[in-house]
Design a binder for these strands. Structure first.
Lengths: 239, 239
DNA sequence: TGGTCGTCTTTTGCATACAATGCGACTGCG
DNA sequence: CGCAGTCGCATTGTATGCAAAAGACGACCA
């Protein structure tokens, strides 16, 4: 009854640290430090990093320390384009198929989002909102769709951490509620539209609106500011 | 200028073997056998398997030999649902954006599909058709979208190998040509529709049509027949 | 003859050891 | 004082070794 494999634990821990913004994009992830921290060898730490890299949360560079991924602005925008397609598929498949228990679970989750909103600077709010979307995907019962939504939602989470403004998760809560209502009422059209709009809103709030005019250099350069933050020799702070 | 890392070579080789159906779903992939075959240690073979598992082409089972993934019928159907969404996004982004060189490259690829159609039992035909879709995705210049399409196209390739009938790639060629024409003429509506229809056709030809009536047990059980094929002690045949 | 248990082999899970690479610091020179 | 070359250390790349789990095979019993 042990955890089926230890590297999963490490992977999950690191992932959570990233999603909670305990680790910022660009932060280094040395294998031995990770192993030491979790009481395992470098082998498993390395394996965990490889998995996270395949999810796009970590960037592996040959002969260099792995770092928390730093999504580019274009990446972030692309993510949401894809997310919209995938999650429209989710709500389409889900519409009218949810039982009372599932609806209650979703509403409970949104309640939790509301409670924790702004608790620690809204950092776990992003994670909770992300988990709401993952939960929806899981309820389709479709393994592959769930995996894809989960992965891209995690990535989006990282992008939001990178580019997002600090505030702005509150509105998501009411949008989540409206979506649940539409799903309950079996209104597929509206549910799809709500999901699209919701994700567009999230992207928009987070500055991801496709820049109409590329004149504003400050915005374009904003992402690269995080590089300064990663001082040399820095290791795994946080935890 | 060395291959940036050796495990990538192994991974690519195994992947290609799977896509060419040199390795069938359910075939076992022992770490040391792979390592021996490619002249590397178990460590790298293991790493390669892990990557392929993250792509869904290989199934890892704790304390057991890895096997080539055996997609379920539902998985296969879900894959195409997702593919349709992702590839509609591709053609939408691509429409009217392709230059003459790119169009020529696509047409050349289709010509190659035509030439090799039925050469070795149509096995490489599936791979080539898959690569056409990947090529389209690459031309969007969107890294994430490309990665997703590539991955799900590979998985579909595996599903087709599992469930598909032997014939039936020929029609895909004319559909590919029609798609290129629509892209050239900047007819986004038609291109999207063609892509959707095309993928539905592919799925349909491969038995993936959602079974209207579940009466035919033989068809439903067909996928599980491959289990018999995987005899005990079998190792890595082909190569 | 058929089923069950125990042992034995194969194979994986994980750690450790060694080689190679890259970065930073230090030194020497202009 | 600044710059270039060189050395050394930190960190990864890869192989190997040992322990444990899972299946295969054979023996024993009903």
């Amino acid at each position: 009854m042990e955890p089926l494999d230890k590297s999963s634990l490490i992977r999950d821990a690191i992932r959570r640290a990233i999603l909670d913004q305990a680790l910022a994009p660009g932060d280094t992830l040395p294998e031995d430090t990770l192993g030491e921290r979790f009481g395992v060898s470098r082998t498993l730490a390395r394996h965990a990093l490889a998995q996270l890299a395949s999810e796009g949360l970590v960037e592996l560079r040959r002969n260099r320390m792995a770092i928390v991924a730093m999504p580019s602005f274009e990446d972030a925008r692309d993510e949401f384009d894809i997310r919209i397609q995938l999650e429209r598929l989710v709500v389409d498949r889900l519409c009218g198929k949810l039982d009372a228990v599932q609806l209650a679970e979703l509403r409970a989750h949104v309640d939790e989002e509301e409670r924790s909103d702004g608790n620690n600077g809204g950092k776990s709010a992003i994670r909770l909102a992300t988990e709401f979307h993952v939960k929806l995907a899981e309820m389709t019962g479709k393994g592959l769709l769930t995996r894809y939504v989960r992965e891209i939602a995690y990535r989006s989470c990282l992008s939001l951490a990178t580019f997002g403004r600090p505030h702005s998760s509150e509105c998501a809560i009411s949008e989540h509620r409206a979506l649940i209502d539409a799903l309950e009422k079996n209104d597929a059209e509206q549910a799809s539209a709500l999901m699209s709009d919701h994700l567009e809103q999230v992207a928009g709030r987070a500055f991801l609106k496709v820049p109409e005019r590329r004149g504003d250099l400050m915005e374009v350069l904003a992402p690269y500011a995080v590089i300064e933050k990663a001082s040399p020799r820095k290791r795994m702070q946080g935890g």
